[in-house]
Design a protein around this nucleic acid. Structure first.
Lengths: 153, 153
DNA sequence: TTAAGTGCAAACGCTTTGCAGTTCA
DNA sequence: TGAACTGCAAAGCGTTTGCACTTAA
């Protein structure tokens, strides 16, 4: 079975009600900044910097401060709802919804697209490391830069 | 053939004479900060932050400023002598001698060791991406965190 | 000799934090 | 009501840069 394509299963938290109760279950409140940051990440089809998130959040609610964006992201990361990554594009971190499945990133240096892929590759790496290197892999971060199929023409 | 172990082939520039002529070939000078930074990286068996490099350099020559360390690292990176990476340990970048071979990093979250491995795995990933994803991989950055064989006991 | 390189200190960009005021439960 | 949360502004941290001085070639 080849790896699945660009689309991938979305995290299990689907809507405001769910993230609201999830936060409450952990003793946190659902607030406007948190909800806005969550929806921006949910509707994004790519990795976003904190500044990009803040900008989109401010389209809906200009009163939200970027420090609340950072605080929301930090909280979501602790709850395993989002993930931070350094994709080597520039100095800033980028954020995405935490995927329930193993996945990796293909960064096209020509068109700048960042595509996610889920599938067997990460699992192959994991078992390779266990079999050949006696290493119990927990987090596998595979970032590949190159040229995507569209740009290859 | 299984992947090679922790040891790996060192970059082709071996000593002061060689890095001196390499720099001169590109129109640069061999200076004390550059030579110090180069020796620290050459003798390091792990990734170092700029601050760690500066500290070690200052053991040999306390007059070297950290800004020269950064300038040396930037120059070496342009010449493909060193590589910068974000290993997800903290916010700072880490530096290592640029390996001539494809390799990946195994970061043990228990003992903190960062081991390099060369071998077939990266090449397998590259061909997988070409075959299944129509993606021409150039740089493959694989960082795996987990627990190493020594810590597993 | 002189352009390349340096140390120093100040600036930079991203991120975090202290605090007083606000808001959700 | 009161603890959780926010906006704001200032601080923090790693990194870069302007400038006058120094040095390798």
């Amino acid at each position: 079975m080849a790896d699945a394509g660009v689309s991938y299963t979305i995290a299990t938290v689907e809507n405001a009600t769910e993230i609201g109760s999830l936060l409450r279950d952990h003793g946190y409140r659902l607030t406007s900044p948190r909800w806005q940051v969550w929806s921006v990440l949910r509707s994004a089809n790519r990795h976003l910097t904190a500044e990009e998130i803040a900008h989109k959040v401010n389209d809906a609610d200009p009163t939200v401060n970027i420090s609340s964006v950072y605080r929301s992201l930090t909280l979501f990361e602790e709850l395993d709802l989002v993930r931070e990554s350094h994709l080597g594009i520039d100095g800033s971190a980028r954020w995405e919804i935490a995927h329930p499945d193993d996945h990796f990133h293909l960064v096209c240096r020509r068109c700048g697209s960042v595509n996610h892929h889920v599938g067997e590759l990460v699992e192959q790496i994991r078992s390779h490391l266990g079999d050949h290197h006696a290493f119990a892999a927990e987090n596998i971060d595979l970032v590949v830069t190159g040229v995507c199929g569209d740009c290859l023409g």
